[in-house]
Amino acid sequence: MRRTLPILAVLAVLLAAIAIANPFFLEPAGFLGFVRRAAPLVILAAGQYFVIVSGEFDLSVGSLVTVEVVVAARLIDGNEGATWPVLLLLVVLGLLVGLANGLVTTLLRVPSFIATLGMMLVLSGAVFLWTGGAPRGALSEGFRMFGRQTGWAVLILAVTALVVVLLTRADFGRTLVATGDNERAAALSGVRVNRVRILAFVLSGASAVVAGILLGGFAGVSAQVGQGLEFQAITAVVLGGVVLGGGRGSVVAAMAGALTLEALFTLLNLYGISGALEFTVQGVIIIAAVAAGAVRLPFAHPRRSKGDAHAAS
């Protein structure tokens, strides 16, 4: 909780600023609309959290989101009856991509930065090849409902949040963080370090599936729908104080980081600042957040009680 407070404070300030600039934001419809907009990024951040806290990266989620949306549009092609079978297929596809990322990173020992960068390029190339640059087909109403109807989007977000919080408290989550902190110690304690890491990548892939379903309904079909989302998700996680390199941070803070980032974009938008600046903002945030984590401020040290003064000796 202590580590979640700073980001919650920042989030509160930004939300207040939005409310001042746009009083509609205080009404349920206004606020839930914001939550719906933020939902895909929050879910991606939750998935990315598992990967980052285990000491890895997942750069492939943005193109995976694109793949999910483009594949869904083409296979459903407006046919309501195809909605559920295709959804199932999308889930399988996302889990397989996560599994591949995990296997390449752990068994082939390719650093995840490279492995998932490769996966990102593979997926982007595949989408381009398959669509020729212009996606065809259309999503069904049944599919679009999830991202378009605020109730559904908020429900999906709430369920996801609950599941990830439970996961981080379960044996899996605790051993995953320990692996990110000290892989060798974890392995010598009997943790199946490869397995928990692979599972983290699979969860990240799953988060891309959910985010893709929401975005498909909300933003529609395009070959750019997932562009840059991997960096937004990483920025959000870092903003939430999760340490790159693993071993430290909370998933609640990571999700709060995503909400904060979305609030920041909303605010920039409200003040008429160009959307093109979003990348610049993200860049500054990610560097500043990592720098703030690296520079150890004196007051950031936990208090030492008398009995533990030897920590200083």
């Binding site: 044996d171 963080v177 902190d181 110690a185």
Partner: peptide, 23 residues
């Protein structure tokens, strides 16, 4: 430090590491 403990985790998380890992 290198092989026994996950230094940034709590005493509780370290104490439970083997139990959790072995289920």
């Amino acid at each position: 430090k290198a092989e026994g403990l996950a230094l940034r985790q709590s005493v509780r998380d370290n104490a439970l590491l083997v139990a959790r890992a072995s289920g």
